[in-house]
Design a protein around this nucleic acid. Structure first.
Lengths: 195, 195
DNA sequence: CCAGTTGTTCACGATTCATTGAACAACTGT
DNA sequence: ACAGTTGTTCAATGAATCGTGAACAACTGG
């Protein structure tokens, strides 16, 4: 094999590698798309996470084949969620992914999920109270108060479950728990110690 | 208080109760909207779940203030997911909610989540393999193989976690597990025994 | 000082998506 | 037989969303 052949075949190998990485990024994008985020966020995060060195937004845009405008807004949202950060202050600092995603997940669970469950819980309480009033007036055959109470208990259980989950911020917090929970936290511990 | 007054105040109480129930339905709709479904599905399911008697699609449409067309398509999807069913065969059978939602959640985890994680896992394996080839050719400084391996381990852990979760189909399956897991399954057990 | 690069902003298409209204078919009780 | 009600289908609409291109500002190295 000549020197030139070796060079071109190495180049082709690098290209193939890049395309594999892009496919990983696409998979991550599809994955988090099902979690209420946008696929572009997952793709950018994965690209930054797998790249050895920090990347400029322009590099990211070229690698993913999207506009710099899209990368700019998406990466700012990633920064808001603490899933990416610039290597230093200043305007043109390159970006790296934050590999430890658990604080973000925890925040989402604490704010978004909690609020949604809490809203349902409060609405159920109000409905039950109103149903009691209606029953005293001899009305109400339409709505099932027992089932309301069942769902109310469900929201309360979901909330204590959420409390446990957001308590798992540090691996230490999981120590008192079962093997199973420790296994679950390993998912995030793996992210915590990237290499 | 006259008889008429008592009747009208009872009627107003029933109206208020209905509006509270609708607010519960809206809350449930908002909640599941964050889980990749449409809010209309949650609203219909909650309405059916809280109603004492089976409801026709037209009743549901009137109660929620939406078109029958929307209810028709949404309720068929609920049926596909086994979250609602007609009380008997035939065209005009009224509908009830299926309160035990765990089989549906389990199905979603098994199909959707599993596929997404698996796609990422396979893509990571391919990237790692390609990176090894590139390294043998003296290329590759761009991509971080160690981090790929970290993410690969992560997908594998996520898959064993998913396997455990979809194994929780019946409460019995959780018996060998910890208090914590049993607490988690109570969330769904509450649904399992509606009243 | 200047040419090139980078990040940001914004108005504008393109596309997707939930919802509707209308038309039709199937069923109900009378 | 029929008048009313119900479920289904589908084209159309309106809104929301996504991504782009262009223009501009900030920074970089010669």
């Amino acid at each position: 094999m000549s020197v030139v052949d070796a060079e071109t075949s190495a180049k082709r190998a690098a290209d193939r590698l890049q395309s594999r990485v892009l496919r990983v990024a696409d998979s991550v994008g599809e994955f988090i798309e099902w979690w209420g985020f946008k696929s572009i966020h997952g793709r950018i995060w994965a690209l930054l996470a797998l790249h050895r060195t920090p990347m400029s937004q322009a590099e990211v845009a070229r690698a993913l084949g999207v506009s710099r405008a899209l990368v700019s807004s998406a990466i700012r949202e990633l920064e808001d969620w603490r899933l990416a950060r610039p290597t230093h202050d200043g305007r043109n600092a390159p970006w790296v992914a934050i590999i430890d995603v658990w604080p973000t997940i925890s925040d989402v669970l604490r704010s978004r999920e909690w609020m949604l469950v809490e809203a349902t819980r409060v609405a159920l309480e109000a409905a039950i109270e109103e149903a009691d009033i209606a029953r005293d007036l001899g009305e109400e055959v339409l709505w099932d108060v027992d089932r309301m109470r069942t769902l109310l208990r469900l929201t309360e259980t979901a909330q204590s479950l959420l409390r446990i989950l957001v308590g798992l911020r540090t691996p230490r917090a999981a120590e008192g728990m079962s093997d199973w929970v420790r296994k679950a936290t390993h998912v995030f511990r793996g992210l915590r110690r990237p290499s």
